[in-house]
């Protein structure tokens, strides 16, 4: 297992595109996060001053970072499509890897990406949190589960990327389909009756990092802070714990389907 992961990193460490994407994600995340906290939005019942503070920082930061997760997913699309367009997947098999090794390698690689970005957010969140929170308020660990769920989301987007790449094989087309899958999904959702329309993969995976503004409004509605307002149907969501469960099932399905496609198809 470790050998497979080592081989994967041997492949990508000299690859410029990989560094550009992760460089972009890792520099933009803290900069944009800082910028958001400086906004003042009139009329919203949200206290922007608490953006960086524990425990809000975890929900806020992971929600922002979820947008960059799409970039990480795109990175996986590119890396996997490369293996087809360079015909190196074929060569790896000829040289002595199995098709299962290929999928396992990519799963290990994606898991390591998810771990790195989660750890990175832990550091960024901790820095923002400790600088702006009053010391000793002891809220560091409260809601830190958002981070773990963010990691699952990263893995989710990457797994969709893997499946699309294995299906389509052409880099340009795969990236387009990956980025438009949210749009494609919302069109499909239109034809599917409730409550099933809430269980589409992109939506489930996106909902792993709930919009903090919506959640805080929902909280206030539930607590009766805003009287007489029924939450609009569009904000009705499945509980986060159920979303996590469904997302994990989706991830396992994406892996299995990718493996199935690879074993059935000839490697041209």
């Amino acid at each position: 297992m470790l050998e497979l992961l080592k081989i994967e990193y041997k492949k990508i460490i000299p690859y410029t595109t990989f560094w550009v994407i992760f460089g972009l994600v890792f520099t933009l995340t803290p900069i944009v996060f800082y910028g958001i906290g400086q906004f003042k939005i009139q009329g919203l019942p949200v206290d922007m001053a608490s953006t960086y503070r524990f425990p809000d920082v975890w929900n806020n930061l992971t929600y922002l970072a979820s947008w960059f997760n799409l970039l990480i997913g795109m990175c996986v699309v590119i890396l996997v499509c490369n293996e087809f367009s360079f015909k190196t997947f074929r060569q790896n098999v000829i040289d002595g890897q199995s098709k299962a090794d290929f999928i396992l390698s990519k799963i290990l690689l994606m898991t390591s990406f998810a771990l790195f970005s989660t750890l990175y957010l832990l550091v960024v969140g901790a820095l923002f949190g400790f600088i702006s929170s009053k010391s000793g308020d002891g809220l560091f660990f409260k809601d830190i589960s958002y981070l773990a769920i963010y990691g699952i989301q990263a893995l989710g987007y990457m797994s969709i990327g893997l499946l699309i790449a294995v299906l389509i094989r052409s880099t340009a087309l795969s990236i387009i389909i990956f980025l438009f899958s949210i749009l494609i999904e919302s069109i499909l959702q239109f034809f599917v009756p409730a409550p099933f329309d809430k269980y589409f993969p992109m939506e489930i995976i996106a909902n792993l990092t709930p919009n903090p503004i919506v959640s805080s409004m929902m909280n206030q509605v539930n607590q009766g802070a805003i009287q007489g307002v029924q939450p609009p149907a569009i904000f009705e969501q499945i509980p986060l714990s159920a979303t996590v469960g469904v997302a994990i099932i989706y991830i396992l399905v994406f892996w299995s389907v990718s493996y199935f496609i690879l074993t059935k198809k000839d490697i041209r």
Partner: peptide
């Protein structure tokens, strides 16, 4: 088998050492 298949952005040495790992 047919065309030579290697990672274009890797050097000859890097490509071969990758094959060594696999083999």
């Amino acid at each position: 088998l047919e065309t030579p298949n290697f990672y274009p952005y890797l050097t000859a040495r890097q490509n071969l050492s990758l094959v060594c790992k696999i083999k």
